[in-house]
């Protein structure tokens, strides 16, 4: 059963059984994703903070100015 078919079925069901859904359902965007069982996005760990994330955040300014941008062009 592919995603588009499921989406179609869901939207049809909403249309045909309005009593089972709230009013806003007629305007719903339906998004279908496959559940990733094997490949999960790798997490970055932050050591003793015990926090983690799928991505990190950069420093707000360049740490040193040793790269000559004019030579890069």
């Amino acid at each position: 059963m592919n995603k588009n078919q499921i989406k179609k079925d869901v939207l049809t069901h909403i249309k045909e059984h309005p009593k089972e859904y709230p009013f806003i359902s007629r305007f719903w965007d339906v998004e279908i994703d496959e559940i990733q069982t094997s490949v999960t996005e790798s997490y970055i760990d932050f050591g003793h903070f015990n926090t983690q994330s799928t991505h990190s955040s950069p420093f707000y300014k360049p740490i040193s100015k040793i790269i000559d941008l004019s030579k890069l062009v």
Binding site: K3, I6, S25, F27, W28, V30, E31, I32, E34, I35
Partner: peptide, 15 residues
């Protein structure tokens, strides 16, 4: 919502 294989999301914040 989740089925065995799919994650179904209904998205609309405000209409």
């Amino acid at each position: 919502y989740s089925t065995k294989i799919y994650n179904v999301k209904f998205l609309t914040h405000t209409k």
